[in-house]
Computed example of a mutant assay.
Amino acid sequence: MTNINPYLATFDETIKLDWDRTGVLRERRNVILEHLRARLDGPSFDPCNQGSYDLRTGVHPLSGDYDIDVALRFNTTIDEWPDPVALKQRVLAGLEDLGSSVRLRRPCVTVFYRRGDEPLYHVDLAVYARDAHERLHIACGKPGDRPDMRIWQPSDPQALGAFIDGRFKDQDRVQFRRVVRVLKRWKDERFSSEGEAAPRGIALTAAALKWFRVERRQDPVDMRFHYDDAAALLAMVKAMHEYPERRLKAKLPVAPGNDPFERMTERQMEIFREELERLERALTTALGSPDRDGACDVLRRVFGDDFPGPEGKPTRKRSAIVASGSAA
């Protein structure tokens, strides 16, 4: 049997998107926030990262279109802004002379950076306000939406990160993140050309919170226990694949407590479960392979060219735009 954990570790180091490595994104985020503070005709706000940056589960996008999610927690109440779109329009107006393309979308206001026709990266700004009980709500909707789609939805941009920190301690939490990142890259590789069939990244995070279990193994030589990412990944994929109901269900443990898999159609769910079966077979085959060449070859077919070969190096070349590039 081949120990594929060293290859998974190299793979994770290659694909993970650390805040410390996102120089241009951090710079653009700060420019946008300062620009908005200076020109906003409305209440003040406190920003914070949210999404995969807050959870530290981000991966380099295969498309090259990097993004960062920023929460704008406004110092106002939802009673003062009964129409959430009105506050988002103030944000849009405050960014009109930024010099970049800005669009108001249903979940957020997005600033796009491009070089010619090539997307470089974008910054999603989600708008929040508090209710009378100090609970945060996110502004949903865009101009032209029906009244029932222009709503304040209970949501806290940092609640999920706090939940994960409370559930997993120290290196257990680090393994959780590694497994989520690997699954996100698998999703990008296997579904990038299949359109709407791809599950959302937040759905994989919700699935990990339901099915992931910490795995360690004892080294027969030094008798110490080491984290076994291969076993943890296989066990989670197997549990998802063998879920007894036709549709996978994994509700988020924080507000709004929705199930991200609900957005997938029956056919999309069918395709997703077929891909889970293929991934389970690949992991089982790699773990049972008598040589590392065969194991790496099998895993590169499901994880792509960033998964290292037997020599321990990935072959895909990636743009350095996030670390040192600049927008035109």
Rank of each mutant, 00 (worst) to 15 (best):
H137L: 11
P84A: 04
E80R: 10
L40R: 04
R200G: 03
R300V: 02
R217L: 07
G195A: 03
V70C: 00
A255S: 13
H122L: 02
I78V: 15
V123G: 02
S326Y: 13
A208M: 10
R29N: 02
K210E: 11
L25M: 07
H241L: 12
A159C: 09
A208R: 07
V123T: 10
V322C: 06
V179F: 05
Y53A: 03
K16Q: 10
S155E: 08
P107N: 05
P47W: 06
I151N: 05
P47H: 09
P119V: 04
R105A: 10
A235Y: 04
I151M: 10
D293S: 15
D293I: 12
R90D: 03
L120W: 00
L104C: 11
Q171C: 01
M1P: 14
R181W: 05
V214C: 05
V102H: 01
P6Q: 01
L299F: 05
T2H: 08
H226E: 12
E311L: 12
C108H: 09
P143L: 08
R246V: 07
R216N: 09
T77Y: 07
R281Y: 10
F212L: 04
D131Y: 07
L252M: 12
S324I: 14
V91R: 02
R135T: 10
F112W: 14
Y227Q: 03
R267F: 13
S100A: 15
P82D: 05
S155R: 02
I4H: 06
V102F: 10
K317Y: 13
H241A: 14
Y113T: 01
D97M: 12
R146Q: 09
R56F: 11
H137R: 06
R39A: 11
Q268V: 00
A230R: 04
I68G: 02
D79N: 09
T110V: 13
V91H: 03
E134M: 13
N5K: 06
A255K: 06
L95G: 08
R300P: 01
L98C: 02
F112Y: 14
N258E: 15
V91F: 07
P199Y: 02
E196C: 04
T10V: 15
V123Q: 03
R26E: 06
Q158H: 15
R200E: 10
E215Q: 14
S101A: 13
L233M: 07
V70W: 01
P6I: 01
L55M: 07
D145H: 07
E118T: 15
R28P: 05
R90Q: 07
G288E: 08
V182I: 15
D12F: 03
P82N: 03
